[in-house]
Measured scan of single mutants.
Amino acid sequence: MTFKLIINGKTLKGETTTEAVDAATAEKVLKQYANDNGIDGEWTYDDATKTFTVTE
């Protein structure tokens, strides 16, 4: 399955996707991606669209 991350950061905005077997696995990968890029904020997840959003 494809999961999307929408980034609403102070210095970085955009989106990325990852392939994962489930939402929990995708969340780990996407949170690591955000952490690697210095993004720390509030996370939400929409199961209907398989989209995570992080807002700083």
Rank of each mutant, 00 (worst) to 15 (best):
T17L: 08
K4E: 03
F3V: 02
Y33I: 06
I6S: 04
E15R: 06
Y45P: 00
L12N: 09
E27K: 09
T17P: 02
T2C: 11
G14K: 13
D36M: 11
K13P: 06
D36H: 08
K10P: 07
A24Q: 11
T44G: 06
D47A: 14
T18R: 06
L12R: 08
T55F: 08
T44Q: 10
T11S: 12
G38V: 03
Y45T: 01
K10Q: 12
G41N: 01
E15T: 13
T49G: 05
Y33T: 03
V29F: 15
E15C: 13
A34I: 05
T49V: 06
G14H: 14
K28R: 13
Y33D: 02
G41W: 07
K10R: 14
N37I: 15
T11L: 11
V54D: 00
D40P: 05
A48Q: 11
G14R: 13
E27T: 04
K31T: 05
Y33A: 03
I39D: 01
D22E: 04
A24E: 13
T18L: 11
K10G: 08
G9S: 11
M1P: 09
N35G: 09
E15V: 11
K50V: 03
K4T: 15
F52V: 00
M1F: 15
K13D: 06
F3A: 01
A23M: 13
E19Q: 14
T16G: 04
G41H: 01
D46S: 06
K31Q: 07
T49K: 07
K4W: 12
G14A: 13
G38Y: 06
G9V: 14
M1S: 11
K13N: 10
E27G: 06
I39R: 02
N35C: 12
N35F: 15
T55G: 04
G14I: 15
K10T: 12
I39W: 08
D46P: 00
K28G: 07
D46E: 08
E42Y: 12
T49I: 07
T53Y: 10
D40L: 13
T18E: 04
T17H: 09
A20C: 07
K50L: 12
L12E: 07
E19R: 13
T25Y: 07
T44I: 09
K50Q: 11
D22T: 05
K50C: 06
E42M: 11
A26K: 00
W43N: 00
I7L: 07
M1G: 10
E27Y: 15
D22S: 07
A34P: 01
D47M: 09
I6K: 07
E42A: 12
T55W: 12
Y45F: 07
T49E: 06
I39S: 02
T51H: 03
N37C: 11
D40Y: 15
V54Y: 02
F3W: 09
T44R: 08
T16I: 15
D36Y: 07
L5S: 01
G38T: 04
D36F: 08
I6H: 05
L5F: 04
D36L: 12
Q32T: 08
T2E: 09
D36C: 07
L30W: 04
E56V: 14
V21K: 14
I7V: 08
V29P: 02
T16V: 15
N35R: 15
G41C: 02
A20N: 04
L30A: 02
L5E: 01
Y45I: 01
F52E: 00
T17G: 04
E42W: 13
K50A: 07
V21S: 12
T18K: 04
T11Q: 10
E15A: 08
A20Q: 10
V29E: 07
K13S: 10
I39H: 04
N8M: 14
K13E: 06
V21H: 12
T44S: 12
I7Q: 02
G38A: 07
D47H: 12
A24W: 13
Q32I: 09
T11M: 10
K4L: 09
D46K: 03
G38I: 03
A34F: 02
T55V: 08
N8F: 13
G38K: 07
D46T: 05
N8A: 09
T16W: 15
T18S: 04
T17Y: 15
F3I: 02
V54I: 09
V29S: 08
D46Y: 04
A48I: 12
T11I: 12
E15I: 14
Y33V: 05
D47W: 09
N8G: 05
E27R: 10
T49S: 10
E42C: 09
T2W: 13
V21Q: 11
K31E: 03
T17W: 14
L5A: 02
G9L: 15
K4G: 04
Y45E: 00
I7K: 02
A34W: 03
T49C: 04
D22Y: 03
E19K: 13
L12K: 11
D47I: 09
I7H: 04
T25W: 07
T2H: 09
